[in-house]
Design a protein around this nucleic acid. Structure first.
Lengths: 218, 218
DNA sequence: TTTTATTTTTAGTCTTATCTAAAAATAAAA
DNA sequence: TTTTATTTTTAGATAAGACTAAAAATAAAA
C-alpha cells in the first residue's frame, strides 16, 4: 500500500518520464511537485527501497515496471473521475482537475471497476487524455490525422501531410506549429468540418485542413 | 480547514453525543476510534483551541455549534456517497461503508451540491440513516426499535442500528430491507425473542436482531 | 584544466498524529 | 472516610513528510 504522498511522487515521475524520455532529475520532480529537492531525495530513496523505482545518486530516477503500473493506475482513476465529473455531474472540463486530484487516491479496485462500467468504459478523459486500462497500459496511438479525432480528443501537432505555401501560411495565421496542442470541440459528420481549440482561440476548420495535419494523441 | 484526522474525531464525537446525550468521555472516543486515550487528549485539546469543541480536563468534551456543523457535513458527504455507490454503481448496502469512509473527506462544496442533485436530493442513505442538509440539520423521524413493539403491532423497517456486514447479510437472507413491512406475531418476555411476519413468511428472531432494527409505526 | 556555477545530497529541525509509561485526578469500594 | 480501582492527562519517543543550511558531486565556463 502506498501513501498519498508516495502516489503523487510516482505520478509526477511517470509524467516526467513521458516528457523527457528516460531518467528524471531530482530538480525536475521538485519543480513539478512544488517541493524542495531535498524532500525529493528523501522520498526517492524511500521509493527505491520499495522497488517501485531505481535510483542512483546524482543520476536521476526511473520507474520500475511495478512503479509504472501503480502510477498508471492513479492516472487511470484521475481520468475516470474527471469523466464522471463532466459527464454525470455537468462540471465544465476546466473545473475538474483539483477534485480529481483528491478522488484519484480513493482505494478500492471494485469501485474503479464499477465506475468504469458506469461511465461506459471511456478511452479518454474530458481533456482528451487517454485513460490507462486496469493493467496500466495506455492505448498508444501513433500520429494520426487531425480529421481522425473525435469530439473532446486532444492532440499535439507533429507534422503536415501537404506542405504547400498556402497551407503552411494558413497554419501560421492560426498559430499552429509543431508542438501546438489542439483540442476538438466539435465535429460535423456531414462534411467533416471541425471546431477546434488552439491556445485560447476557438475556431472553425474545414475537413481539408484537418486531413492534412498530423497529430499525436499520447 | 480541517485535516482528515480532525474530521474523523469530530465525526466520532458527534455520533457519541447522539448516543450518550451530553459530554463525551476520552475513553469513549478512544474506543470508537480505536486509538489510545492519550492520543485523544492531545487531539481534543487541539480541537478545543480551534473552538470546534469545548473541553474541560477530566470532564469530557462537547461539540460547539461550529464543530457540530463540520461533523454533520462529513456525515452528509458519507451518506450521499453511500447513496451514489448503491443507487448508481449497484453496490450492495453492506459493501459501501469503507469506501464512503474515504470519500467523505473529499473537499469541494460544489461537488457535494452537484452530487446531491444528481442523486435526486435523497433524505436517507441505504441503511435508512438520515442525510443532514447543507446546514447540518437532520430531519428527525419518529422511529423506534422493533424490540419496542408488542404482539400484533406493525411497523415499516426504516433503518438499522448496527450496520455490520453480518447483520445486513442476515437481513438479506430474511428478505428484510428498508421499506419492508413487519408484524409482530408473538413476543417472549423471558428473552425478548419474537415471531414476526415478513411478507408471507413467519419466523423467529432473537432479541439482538429486534434491538438493531428501526421501524416506523405510523 | 582549473575555476565557477549548478545540481544533488546530507544533516539536522519542525509539525502532525500516533504511541508507551508514569503521574495525577476522579470514582468506587471497603 | 480511607483505600483501591479506573480514568485521564502529561512527558517523552517515534514515524512520515516537509523544510533550511551546508557539504559534496557534477556540469559549464574560462
Amino acid at each position: 500500500m502506498f501513501s498519498l504522498a508516495e502516489e503523487n511522487y510516482l505520478k509526477a515521475i511517470y509524467h516526467l518520464e513521458q516528457q523527457h524520455q528516460g531518467e528524471v532529475s531530482t530538480n525536475a520532480i521538485a519543480d513539478r511537485m512544488d517541493t524542495k529537492p531535498s524532500s525529493v531525495t528523501d522520498m526517492v530513496q524511500k521509493l527505491a527501497d520499495k522497488e517501485v523505482l531505481s535510483y542512483k545518486k546524482y543520476k536521476g530516477t526511473i520507474l520500475t515496471p511495478s512503479g509504472r503500473k501503480i502510477a498508471a493506475n492513479v492516472i487511470r482513476k484521475h481520468r475516470l473521475w474527471e469523466v464522471f465529473l463532466v459527464e454525470k455531474l455537468n462540471f465544465h472540463w476546466d473545473e475538474v482537475h483539483e477534485i480529481a486530484e483528491q478522488l484519484e487516491h480513493i482505494q478500492s479496485e471494485e469501485l474503479v471497476k464499477r465506475l468504469d462500467d458506469f461511465l461506459g468504459n471511456p478511452d479518454f478523459d474530458p481533456h482528451g487524455d487517454p485513460i490507462p486500462d486496469k493493467h496500466g497500459n495506455i492505448k498508444r496511438t501513433e500520429k494520426k490525422l487531425l480529421s481522425e479525432l473525435n469530439k473532446n480528443q486532444k492532440g499535439v501537432c507533429v507534422g503536415v501531410k501537404e506542405s504547400s505555401g498556402e497551407f503552411l501560411q494558413y497554419l501560421d495565421k492560426k498559430r499552429i506549429s509543431i508542438g501546438t496542442k489542439i483540442k476538438v470541440l466539435g465535429k460535423e459528420f456531414f462534411d467533416g468540418s471541425m471546431v477546434i481549440q488552439v491556445g485560447k482561440d476557438q475556431f472553425f476548420i474545414s475537413q481539408k485542413i484537418a486531413e492534412n495535419l498530423y497529430v499525436q494523441t499520447n
